[in-house]
Computed example of a mutant assay.
Amino acid sequence: MDTELILMQLFSGVALGAILVITALGLSIIFGMLGVVNFAHGALFMVGAYAGLWVASLTGSFWWGLLVAPIMIGVFGMAIEYVLIRPLYGRSIDDPLLLTFGLSYVLVEGVRIVFGSDGIPFPTPSSLTGVVDLGVGFFPIYRIFVVGVVFLVVVLLWLGLEKTKFGLIVRAGARDPAMMKVLGVDISKVWLLVFGLGVGLASLGGVLSGPMRSVNPEMGALVLAEAFVVTVIGGLGSLVGSIIAGLLVGVVISMTALFAPEMATIVMFALMAIVLMIRPQGLFGKLA
């Protein structure tokens, strides 16, 4: 098999993995801080893609869609946390899980009513079309851009969580929220911002994936399954685990699609099963 084809497929896996990383990071942040299993994460990924397409069509600029949509959907996520999820804190973990599960159906049906059930093309900006020669093959410029954006976001997120006072509060609150309350920190505001951040990351993933596939109401379903697989493989609540597992799953899916296309959908679940048999807490997770 041609080496250039293998390298191109490998890079396609990295680009897919980058989308999974940004989506799984949002899921992992929400679970790690709030203990909420957000089953609406895939639907919010999809809503982010539609929001990006809508803003881009209004402004005539993909860049405005990429900038505005994650902020807009992040604020929407904060409203979800404040109105729907906050009253469920302190109750069984199943309650927010079931609520977000139902919310995902509401969001999907709402998008169907507004935009229809058919897929809508999300045009790639002219400045990012075509391919570039990297010396070992020709690679799509847009996919290189996606990897670069995700890398930048991951670095900024790490700096925000590790080098700022807010990041210190988030990390401390994830370990002992009761102690943070005793110290005078309004932990509810922190939860609000963290949930909005997680949803914003999901919507950013939706916007970035739009030009790589058509935007449709069902696009979040598979992404949700992939994001949960990434989160479980990496370790629940582990940001480093989400990054490494996202890239790993993306590459495994892409290379399997090249050699055994019929196995591409299920290979990630096989990988998850193998990891859990060896490390039940995931690659970077901690045993309870």
Rank of each mutant, 00 (worst) to 15 (best):
D2Q: 07
I6Y: 00
M8C: 11
L10R: 04
S12I: 15
V14P: 00
S28T: 11
M33R: 08
L34Q: 15
H41C: 09
G42P: 02
A43W: 07
F45N: 01
V47S: 00
W54C: 11
S57K: 14
S57Q: 13
T59M: 06
W63Y: 12
W63I: 01
L66T: 10
L67A: 08
L67Y: 09
V68D: 00
V68K: 01
G74S: 04
V83L: 01
L84D: 15
L88V: 15
S104A: 15
E109A: 11
I113E: 15
V114L: 00
F122G: 04
T124S: 15
L134S: 09
F139P: 05
Y142C: 03
V149P: 02
V149C: 01
V150S: 13
W158M: 09
W158R: 11
L159S: 03
G160L: 12
K165R: 15
A172M: 07
A178N: 13
V182F: 05
G184A: 01
D186P: 03
F195T: 00
G198T: 02
R213A: 05
S214K: 06
F228E: 06
F228M: 08
T231K: 12
G234Y: 04
S238T: 05
S238K: 09
V240I: 14
S242K: 01
A245N: 14
V251N: 04
V251G: 02
T256A: 02
E262M: 08
M263Y: 15
M268G: 05
M272C: 08
V275H: 06
L276G: 04
I278N: 02
P280G: 09
